[in-house]
Design a binder for these strands. Structure first.
Length: 826
RNA sequence: GCCGCGGUGGCGGAAUUGGCAGACGCGUCGGACUCAAAAUCCGAAGCCCCUCGUGGGUGUGAGGGUUCGACUCCCUCCCGCGGCACCA
């Protein structure tokens, strides 16, 4: 490497090879004391990396390299979220086996990542489609089954007719499939579930411990869990022995109940539909609607009288029971008490079906009347028409009424969550098989541990029609019952791919461990992840599942950890021409193309400089040019000025010229700024801006007419500082310049920089002099000047004299190092 | 509808704890180098006004407030983005 031209292609290949050969980024098996685990969300191997990946992984790489230079042992792994639908679609469309397609994609994407110079410990790489990975997931499944955390149940589930599979609630976005945007319909199926609801409270409480997570992600998770506190109350049904159980958050409005509403899917409705064809028709009609249609008819409150009456336990009043489409079976008990005066939905329903109203809450200073109410009053107030509770404030009445209900055995306090159990069955081939055998005699039997993994068969036909290829694979289906030895039938559903990504971060600590899923020593030494980086789109999907799974693994005894990710950074999207990059928009920028034209360092610098990580990044070809220009400028600063940095030796601070002192100070200020921006704030754009300022200052310094020997030593030192500051951000050029400056050790191993606090402070400073908040002058004063002295100088300024002429000084405010404000009045 | 985030030059963005708004970069303009162009280096620039100066005013979505002082805090409103959306 001896060219004086900046040739990123050559430099980058050279250093990537050396890093790999000398295993620079290999993490030790056990983490030492001050270790750092830096993880980026691993990709689905779709074929090629896109700019979103480049940005995500560049951010992670800067953080990992920074901590490495600070002497910490860093775990920075990469792998592949390799199961999923696209592989199967490729098989159907192009006749290539999912395993082969996936392997090819992985190989190519790995090569792309290597060309970006990411500091991964590739020895820890794995794909979740490896049997050596998913076998442990099957073991977890069996353990969860034993603990009742996995169960099978027949219920209404989200079904995508395009993907021909079930979707979890988290995978339905606005009523459509998150992958293909097909409207999702409700289908009653036998499915496997993970009991995430058992952890609802802990997942919610945990949000408050996650200090290193962005507030908006926590808010989204809290909303998703959706805790509400209220009461469950039984309303006895007239002429029946059972009672209608309802959940309400407003027990204080119990005296205002004028009817009841139940979901069309409510178990009671099945009986009724058999006897009454009008009800049967209504139920059929409402169920044929997909979610989208139900939402669109929001304003219309459809319903039908069930013929049943319920008795309000508090008043002994008989109220009619309606079947209403807006009542959801999945939430609460699938039945509600209706208080039209104090719930807008009930109000609308009552109006449409001409049902009576009764006001039971009167806010201070108002008195609602049933005949004149145009909308429900949902706020607090004083109870009215509420028997012995009349006159009590609503908040207090809630407590009192619940206590009363409990004393009578009519109901009790109840906490309800919006979160529902995680449906994990997928009717697809390319996923981890669920290790269960069905036997006519023994029923559902888990596959014995010694028979794991239940491997995916490879000889499979992909027709794209009907059910999963596994369901029509005779050899796969046929199995012997582990309990009785008779012929059984294997489960053909596979697990949701979000199961794999719920624990991969732990496996990175011990990817080759084969005595169990996780090597306790290495897992406990490395975890939790110190810094996790990925897109905001996983705020409630992956990030909630991973938290849940961590708690499950803890309770199964595999891990001693409550939360997997200590700090979370959610990076924004990469945008071009005002839209997310996508094939359909035709605004895709290909990373390969950019790397070959400008080099990886330029691509990295652009991604880091154009915006702070959380914000969307606007791709700009001119911006890339700018990044490239900057690196060229850095290159020339070193290469073209060799005569100025041949002097080796410590910087003789006392003998520096005045410009030299300025440079020395500027360099230390830059170290301080970059250390804070990269190490703490993760604001790489301002770190780069500071480095650019230093480069600009060094250019001016180098062009000075004559430079003394002390100043030459300073210049050399400054270039070393510059290389190090740049090393996490643009590692190849930094490594190359470092070597050209004569260093034999990798820059990665040469330590970070210390700030000399005394070098940072300036002797003189500029203060703005304001009169009534308007800047009128700027003065140079020595640091630490007293207020009187500063004031004296300020009042001597001609501009200041002019603007306070004929005024009386009321007050003077000095903000040290910043400004002096003179407040005057006529 | 509810919750959250945001709105700063021609553009991307900076201002970290209430203290000089516009750092840094892009683009633009001017100069140097060149036969010329590109590249490079140096410099100018928020906007408006005028008597063209070492001048004045104004300015962070709009309006109001608190403060000696507000991009920053409070209230009302407008716009954009994201999440949730009949959750009882």
């Amino acid at each position: 490497m001896s060219s004086n031209e900046y040739l990123p292609g050559e430099i980058e290949a050279h250093w990537q090879e050396r890093w790999e050969k000398e295993q620079v980024f290999k993490a030790p098996r056990l983490a030492p004391e001050n270790s750092f685990y830096c993880l980026e969300m691993f990709p689905y191997p779709s074929g090629r990396i896109h700019m979103g990946h480049v940005r995500n992984y560049t951010i992670g790489d800067v953080i990992a390299r920074y901590h490495g230079m600070n002497g910490r042992a860093v775990l920075h792994p990469m792998g592949w979220d390799a199961f999923g639908l696209p592989a199967e679609n490729a098989a159907i469309e192009r006749g290539i086996h999912p395993a082969k397609w996936t392997r090819q994609n992985i190989d190519y994407m790995r090569s792309q990542m290597k060309r970006m110079g990411f500091s991964y410990d590739w020895s820890r790489e794995f794909a979740t489609s490896d049997p050596s990975y998913y076998r442990w997931e099957q073991l977890f499944f069996i353990r969860m089954l034993e603990k009742g955390l996995a169960y099978r149940s027949r219920s209404y589930v989200n079904w995508c007719s395009q993907c021909q599979t079930v979707l979890a609630n988290e995978q339905v976005e606005g009523g459509v499939c998150w992958r293909c945007s097909t409207p999702v319909i409700q289908k009653e199926l036998e499915q496997w579930f993970f009991r995430i609801t058992a952890y609802a409270e802990e997942l919610l409480q945990g949000c408050d411990q996650l200090r290193g997570w962005p507030e908006r992600v926590l808010t989204m998770q809290k909303n998703w869990i959706g805790k509400s506190v209220g009461a469950e109350v039984g309303f006895p049904l007239v002429n029946r022995s059972d009672a209608l159980r309802i959940f309400t958050t407003r027990p204080d409005t119990l005296y205002g109940v004028t009817f009841m509403s139940i979901a069309p899917e409510h178990p009671i409705v099945k009986d009724l539909a058999q006897k009454d064809s009008r009800i049967a028709d209504f139920v059929k009609r409402s169920q044929s609607k997909d979610r989208q249609a139900r939402i669109e008819t929001q304003t219309s409150k459809e319903g039908i009288f069930s013929g049943l009456y319920a008795i309000n336990p508090l008043t002994q009043e008989k109220v009619p029971v309606y079947i209403a489409t807006f009542v959801l079976m999945e939430y609460g008990t699938g039945a509600i008490m209706a208080v039209p005066t104090h719930d807008q939905r009930d109000f609308e329903f009552a109006r449409q079906h001409r049902l009576p109203l009764r006001v039971v809450i009167q806010p201070q200073g108002e008195s609602f009347r049933e005949e004149t109410m145009q909308t429900a009053y949902e706020g607090e107030g004083i109870l009215a028409n509420s028997g012995p509770f009349t006159g009590i404030a609503s908040e207090e009445a809630k407590k009192k009424i619940v206590e009363y209900l409990e004393s009578k055995g009519w109901g009790q306090k109840k906490v309800q969550y919006r979160l529902r159990d995680w449906g994990i069955s997928r009717q697809r081939y390319w996923g981890s098989p669920i290790p269960i055998i069905y036997c006519d005699t023994c029923g559902m039997v888990p596959v014995p541990e010694k028979d794991l993994p239940v491997a995916l068969p490879t000889d499979v036909a992909f027709t794209g029609k009907g059910e999963s290829p596994l369901a029509s694979h005779p050899n796969f289906i046929s199995a012997t019952c582990p309990r009785c030895g008779k012929k059984g039938r294997r489960e053909t559903d596979t697990m949701d791919t979000f199961v794999e990504s719920s624990w991969y971060f732990a496996r990175y600590a011990c990817p080759d461990y084969n005595k169990g899923p996780l090597d306790p020593d290495s897992v406990h030494s490395w975890l939790p992840v110190d810094q996790y980086i990925g897109g905001i789109e996983h705020a409630v999907l992956h990030l909630l599942y991973a938290r849940f799974f961590t708690k499950v693994l803890r309770d199964l005894g595999y891990i001693r950890l409550d939360e997997p990710f200590q700090n979370l950074l959610t990076q924004g999207m990469v945008i071009k021409d005002g839209a997310k990059m996508s094939k359909s928009k035709g605004n895709i920028v290909d990373p390969d193309d950019m790397i070959s034209r400008f080099g990886a360092d330029t691509v990295r610098v652009f991604c880091l400089f154009a915006a702070p990580p959380e914000k969307d990044l606007d791709w700009s070809d001119q911006g890339v040019q700018g990044a490239s220009r900057f690196l060229q400028r850095v290159w020339r600063l070193v290469i073209d000025q060799e005569s100025l940095w041949k002097e080796v030796g410590p910087v003789p601070v006392k003998d520096l010229s005045s410009q030299g002192i300025e440079i020395y100070r500027k360099a230390h200020q830059t170290i301080q700024k970059v250390t804070d921006d990269v190490g703490r704030r993760y604001h790489f754009n301002t770190a780069l801006a500071a480095i650019m300022e230093l480069v600009n200052a060094l250019y001016l310094f180098a062009s000075a007419a004559s430079i003394s020997d002390p100043d030459k030593r300073l210049f050399r030192w400054s270039l070393e500082v510059l290389s190090k500051l740049l090393a996490p951000l643009a590692p190849h050029i930094a490594e190359e310049l470092w070597a050209r400056l004569g260093h034999k050790k990798f820059i990665v191993h040469s330590g970070w920089l210390e700030v000399d606090p005394s070098a940072v402070v300036e002797e003189m400073q500029t203060l703005a002099v304001q009169v009534n908040g308007k800047v009128r002058a700027r003065i140079q004063v020595p640091v630490g000047f007293s207020e009187e002295r500063v004031r004296e100088i300020a009042l001597g300024e001609e501009k200041v004299v002019q603007s306070i002429q004929g005024m009386r000084i009321e007050k003077v405010v000095l903000v040290p190092g910043r400004l002096l404000n003179i407040v005057v009045r006529r």
